[in-house]
Amino acid sequence: MLSLRSISKKLGTFEMSDISFDIAPGQYCMLLGPSGVGKTVLIETIAGLITPDSGSILWEQKDITQAASEKRNFAVVYQDYCLFPHLSVADNIGYGPKTGGADKKTIQTKLRSIAQTLGITELLDRKPSTLSGGQQQRTALARALICEPKLLLLDEPLAALDTKTRLDLRKQLKQLAKDLNIGVLHVTHDPLEAIALGDVIVVMIDSKIKQIATPRELFRTPSDSQVADFLGMDNVFKADFAGDGLVKVGAIDVYASAAGDATCNIWIKPEEILLSSKPFDSSARNQFETCVVSVEHKDPLIAVKLGIGDFELTAFVTYGSFEHLQIEKGSAVYATFKSSAVHCF
């Protein structure tokens, strides 16, 4: 178990203070916050690359605040991969075991197995510069995991990838962490990523920890308005799983791409809702006739609150669409969204 106790650090104009939280063995911990709040500094502090001004870092109750980075066995994976450009993919992955003095045969065996897990066996002879972003990130993950680290520190590992690769790798990350039963601290600015992966979410805003909670708790009771604002709390509903990709929000049926438990929360991002004046046929499975309850200007978008039964749904539209659809309070519009826009947690 990793424990942070009142970590503070000042670096130039940047300052973080009184950071305390724990990561239990095998726990997938998301560090969620807007850019520039010092999430990277915190990762590098835990890794021993930056010494905190005050506070302590404990591993299994032992103080490791002053321990050298190479003695901690906490692996770091950065957003832009940071592969060694002068080494092949195989030599990149083998760097850790080779440094640890493992013999060639052991390295080869481990290398094959981890490359297979991450699906990069064909790339082993290539140089990093010839790989795509997803391949580079898989290589960086393999390089970290081959050392069997006690803790995996991921700094926005999926942020630079295209959507499909990001979703694939997201799934795989969660599975890997589970299979290896390894503690993970995963930094992100994306609330969706946080709820998709996190056993627990640590919200960091203005260089302070605002809340530590499970995804459900976080959305049920955000600690203050700042947290709620950052999460974008619109359109979070309690739902019951009705089988066959269907969830029930009250009496309303909503199609969701993945639904797990008997009861869950669903979250539909306001940007992902399409408004139209008439119903239309499309691949999107959810379409509702609604009544405009209120209109609020939120530069550069307009937030339109829609009534469906007893519920209110918020959709964001641009000024152009707003004018074009001639939306006003009381008018009837159709709200359409894909089942993949319904995020369950």
């Binding site: 050298a68 190479e70 906490f74 760097y95 850790g96 520190l153």
Partner: peptide, 25 residues
Amino acid sequence: PRLENVARTLGASPVRVFFTISLPL
């Protein structure tokens, strides 16, 4: 410098990082 950071977290001492990462690059 983050290349050197990564090498450190993979178990390399500062001396080893110098000879295997910084100097070749």
